[in-house]
Design a protein around this nucleic acid. Structure first.
Lengths: 147, 147
DNA sequence: CAGTTTCATTGGATGCCCCAACGATAACCA
DNA sequence: TGGTTATCGTTGGGGCATCCAATGAAACTG
């Protein structure tokens, strides 16, 4: 301990630290890319989930994307205000809103998906295809440790 | 595109998304561990950097750890209030504060380092030693793309 | 010596996460 | 059936981390 007086920071070698830094860079790159279409990351994630799940309740959207119901209200409000999704009462369960993507939402989603992919390509530009696949596999196991 | 109607979310396979999720889990694990010593992540990081760099200005600390000067003021205030660091005016440059770790700060740092290491072990528990080293290497290249 | 830069500090804004409550509705179960 | 429990959307509030702008003091530059 005392014999390593000026060792390079232990913290910088910790997975939690590296993950935080890498995530920050990824967030910045993606956010900047999406901003050119006036979209934010969580809005894009929700829009993508809506496109994928079809008519879906806000609660299920929140579980899928990992967003607090409180924040989901604001996001769906924004998406609806921009005409990207529709929010209609579910006739089968009148508690729920059936959130569905609109035609303009699909067009917007195609553009933002391209932007997101490009940002991710830049994020992992230093990696080969094989290394990128390795990283994704390792991260997946860290994110869902029990599954 | 149209032939994958219910494909699992594209977003969940993006490095930026996985990094965000993994970083969130790492942050949660480390923060919970450090909380048992009444410390927060950034406080621990700054304390570790102070121990490593010796008497150092807040600005250099901020550059090392990647913290906004505004936040550094509050963190050093807390660390000083807990008697973990000392903040004395630098005689050579009266703009700077010379931040230095105290004896109690070193004791605290030893404990929080153990806690941080344990949390990181839990974070990467699903990985073998070799995979953990791979992950660290890949993340390092993502964090510092040009270097 | 004048202009520029750095430093510590303050102020303010934003985004994400968590907890609590509410009225309406649905599901469960005895 | 009726009474309890759970879910849904929504509103409210708070904590925490990150970021940008500005300021006065001090140092550096040419």
């Amino acid at each position: 301990m005392a014999d390593t007086p000026y060792a390079p920071s232990r913290i910088r070698a910790l997975p939690s630290w590296l993950l935080g830094r890498a995530a920050a860079r990824g967030h910045r790159l993606v956010a900047e890319a999406l901003a050119t279409e006036g979209m934010r990351m969580m809005h894009h994630a929700v829009l993508s989930a809506v496109a994928e799940l079809g008519p879906v309740s806000q609660a299920e959207l929140g579980r899928t994307v990992g967003i607090d119901p409180k924040d989901m209200v604001a996001i769906v409000n924004d998406l609806q205000g921009d005409g990207l999704v529709t929010r209609t009462p579910d006739p089968k369960d009148r508690r729920k809103n059936a959130v569905e993507i609109s035609a303009e939402g699909q067009r917007r989603l195609r553009r933002t998906q391209r932007l997101g992919d490009a940002a991710n390509a830049e994020l992992t530009a230093a990696l080969s295809d094989e290394e990128r696949a390795q990283l994704i596999a390792l991260l997946t196991r860290i994110v869902a440790p029990g599954e």
